[in-house]
Amino acid sequence: MKNMRKHGILNRRTLTLIIIALSVIIILAVTAAGFIMDEELYAPHFAEKNLPPSGHHLFGTDWMGRDMFARTVKGLSVSIYIGLLASCATSVIALFLGVIAGTFGKYASGIFNWFVDIFMGIPHLILLILISLLLGKGAKGVAIGVIVTHWCSLGRIVQAEVLALKDSQFVKASEKLGKTKLWIAFHHIMPHVVPQFIVGLILMFPHAIMHESSITFLGFGLPAEQPAIGIILSEAMKHLTTGMWWLAVMPGISLLIIVVLFEAIGSHLRMLLDPYSAQE
């Protein structure tokens, strides 16, 4: 087992890292661009109404002469921002509840499972709409809606992982070597749960973004004056019949690309962290 030979630089793992890095850069760029963007860029210019995509207006303009590229970037950045915030919050809830359910015996598990079943039993979108409506729509309503509905599956994963680790021989052996429960939680259990959790968190982003966009599209989310991607798409629907396809297609594809990029980060990261695929 000592025969080692070095290989070239661009191997599968390098490629994976490059994909992850590129995706992160694109997403960060879109988000940052949206934030620092001058409002003038997507302000109405009635002289340039209803223009199809061209070199000057990459995504064309709408019926008020607003540049669709600028609006899309702004909209995406709002969606990403809300999505990130909501997924982080919901993941923390998942981690907290999952660890508690895994650590504190039967009753905690029972209550946890009961809640998860309730939340998973109701279709996501309906629950989201209800919560968002209850909280008076807007960014707050959407964010809280996503936070409340999205922790279940990741929570289950964390719980199962903690349960399995608690039963593992190396944890039992550690107990017998005189280590306290808290010490074991930090040194044996956390290092195993955290990588799973991070991948779960990243794979949550596209989910949250899609859900934010869909309820905004349906009119239960962000207010109409906000250039969110859901608003852009729902407005575009009204003008589709007039032949202005670019109003829906360009922002729609952009949203799709962002979601795919997040998925790419998550799944590639999982490949690196998972011992079964890490050596490929």
Partner: peptide
């Protein structure tokens, strides 16, 4: 894989 990105053959 070694620690970073380099590879070796394990016979």
């Amino acid at each position: 894989y070694d620690k970073g990105l380099s590879k070796h053959d394990l016979t």
